[in-house]
Design a protein around this nucleic acid. Structure first.
Lengths: 129, 129
DNA sequence: CTTGACCTTGGACTTAACTCCAAGGTTTAC
DNA sequence: GTAAACCTTGGAGTTAAGTCCAAGGTCAAG
């Protein structure tokens, strides 16, 4: 139904990148008799999810583990552990992001040239006070 | 006062990485007459901030721009624009992280083997419903 | 039945962010 | 004073995540 060009178009990543994701085991494609890849509709959202994870600092390897349970060879319990760990990591990352936001917001409030400060001026403890 | 080994120890990054950050213009070190680098105390927090930004998906280049205003050659207004843009980006990223958390949490609730689902099963729209 | 827009593979190349190594200078401990 | 534990530089090597290219197969339109 959906060939690689259409998926690339719809998801905003290059054909090469999609083939790369497949080689890394992140996504799977059926094949037409002529060898062309065939993707289901939901694959568009899947690719978006991968890009989202990347933008948040997760590696393709981590995302792959989440998505397909380390090659499909994981037990129920292992998958649960993996997911719980990821959840904790996401929560920690949200906290960090919130801290970082405070640092940047404080800096913006000061609205002074950045390069001219004393060292340590970006120290969160000092800046957030 | 603080030499590179001590900073590496205190911040948890390698000496090589610290020298690399300096070469990329992210941090600065004074020098002793013998050529040894000398860092102020606040540098430990600075390095932590850099690592934090990286874990959240920002590149060293982006972090550097934030930290020192693109080489110190930016006007007040340019710095403000830069900071405002970063702030918006952080907010967007927090929203994404929140969405991602919902996807993972939903998946955990299902607690079923990940690799065996129909394609599109991780589709946020479907999963979040 | 050829032209152009697709698709295939394999392999070489690129960039960011390290990481390691070699050759050598300095400082501290015995 | 010499050995161990620091520091310096320059440059080579590594990994992740693409990106590009060449040689070639497929398919719809004219």
């Amino acid at each position: 139904m959906m060939r690689i060009g259409a998926l690339a178009e719809a998801s905003g990543v290059s054909r090469d990148t999609l083939r790369y994701y497949e080689k890394q085991g992140l996504i799977h494609a059926d094949r037409w008799p002529n060898g062309y890849r065939d993707y289901p509709e939901g694959m568009v959202e899947m690719v978006r999810l991968i890009r989202q994870g990347q933008a948040l600092g997760f590696s393709l390897k981590e995302i792959g583990a989440l998505v397909q349970g380390l090659g499909g060879g994981l037990s129920q319990a292992e998958v649960e552990t993996l997911l719980r760990g990821k959840l904790a990591e996401i929560d920690a990352r949200m906290q960090e992001l919130s801290d970082l936001r405070a640092v940047v917001a404080r800096r913006l409030a000061k609205a002074c040239p950045l390069g001219l400060d004393a060292p340590g001026s970006l120290d969160p403890k000092r800046v957030a006070s």
